[in-house]
Computed example of a mutant assay.
Amino acid sequence: MSASDVNDDLLARDEPAGFADAPADLNDRDHVNSLARGLEVIKVFSRRTPKMTLSEVAQATGMTRATVRRFLLTLVREGYVETNGKHFNLRPKILELGFSALSSMDIWDVAQPIMNALSERLQESCFAAVLDHDSVIYVARATSNQRVSVGINIGSRVPAHCVSTGRVLLSALPPDLLHQYLDEMTLTKFTPNTITSKVQLRSLIDEVRLQGWSIVDQELEVGLRSLSVPIRDGQGKIVAALNVCCPSMRITPEDMRTRVLAEALEASNNITRALQI
């Protein structure tokens, strides 16, 4: 996984992260249709479709080619999209949209030094992620001096069903939203370990909700093992997942369930306590 994974802006909610709803008092008069359609154009670019033709974007959004062309050329002119004349793809500048939102959230100012300390103690890479519909987006990172590190960067987006951050965040969703997720999601198999049964995934998510943590062993990428715990705000709501990710050759499952889990839970609790001050 690399920085070429799709970079998208985050729409967060006050409930467990993800699935943002519009304000109840929003009426049609307040809705800017052109802005909404422009955002739809941005969101069709994904890890599976990082480069798309004008026709492909039009088909994916249900808009006319002429409409999509105007949106894409505007995004090109503003520096958010680039084109080779046939294909379009997002540029790193798109991250500025997400960073603007994140920079206003005090939680990341609090979390970063705690994550840095956790990474140094464990000598492994640590991340924070939030839920965005059926994906997680990594929004903070801390790395150690280990020569072999995990290639996940801020802004990387991965499917939620096959990573420990995703299962922690999904476990925080209200039952109706979790049911909607499982009903609509296609569970892609990335490795021989990837869970693709919705019944089994639901059972694992329920288990995570009860125990308060998740370990996923090589379901997204062979050789990659990770553990995640919830990050809660000052009111106790789960707003993100704290993740320790490492090559499986360095950390055994037993070590993950003992030493790494204890350190991650302590770091998460420290973040929550700091937010209550």
Rank of each mutant, 00 (worst) to 15 (best):
G18A: 10
N27S: 10
A24V: 15
N33C: 01
L39P: 00
E15A: 13
A24Y: 08
V41P: 01
L39Q: 06
A17Y: 07
A22V: 11
R29W: 08
A12S: 10
A17D: 08
H31Y: 15
P16L: 04
N33G: 00
R37P: 00
R13D: 13
S34M: 12
A24H: 10
D28P: 00
D25R: 05
L26A: 13
L11N: 01
H31M: 12
E15P: 00
D14I: 05
A12C: 05
P16D: 02
A17M: 08
D14K: 08
P23S: 04
H31F: 15
D25M: 04
F19K: 00
P23M: 08
A20V: 13
F19V: 06
E15W: 07
D30N: 09
L39F: 12
D21Y: 03
E40N: 06
H31I: 14
F19P: 01
F19I: 03
D25S: 10
R13V: 01
V32R: 14
A20Q: 07
A24S: 15
D30L: 12
A24N: 09
L26R: 12
H31L: 15
L26I: 13
E15T: 13
R13C: 10
A24M: 11
G38C: 05
A24K: 14
A20T: 11
A12N: 06
D14M: 07
A20M: 10
E15K: 10
A20N: 02
D14P: 00
V41L: 02
L35H: 12
A17C: 11
P16K: 02
D21V: 09
G38N: 06
H31W: 14
L39K: 04
G38E: 05
D25W: 08
D14N: 11
N33F: 02
A17T: 15
P16S: 04
G18W: 03
A36F: 06
A36C: 05
R13N: 14
G18H: 05
D28M: 08
D25C: 01
E40F: 00
E15M: 06
V41A: 03
G38Y: 03
A22L: 15
E15G: 12
D14F: 09
P16Y: 02
N27T: 11
A20C: 05
N27L: 06
G38R: 09
N27K: 05
R37T: 03
E40V: 02
D21C: 04
A36R: 09
V32E: 14
D28K: 03
G38P: 08
L35Y: 14
D21S: 12
A22R: 11
D28Y: 03
G18C: 08
L11Q: 04
L26W: 12
S34W: 12
D25G: 00
L26C: 10
E15H: 09
G38H: 05
D28C: 01
D30C: 03
V41K: 01
A36N: 06
A22K: 08
A36P: 00
P16E: 02
A36V: 14
D14L: 12
N27R: 10
H31G: 00
A36G: 08
R37Q: 12
E40G: 03
D14S: 12
A22F: 14
R29P: 00
F19N: 01
D30A: 13
E40P: 00
R29H: 09
A24C: 04
D14C: 03
R37K: 13
A20H: 04
G38L: 11
A22E: 09
D21I: 03
A17L: 07
F19E: 01
E15R: 13
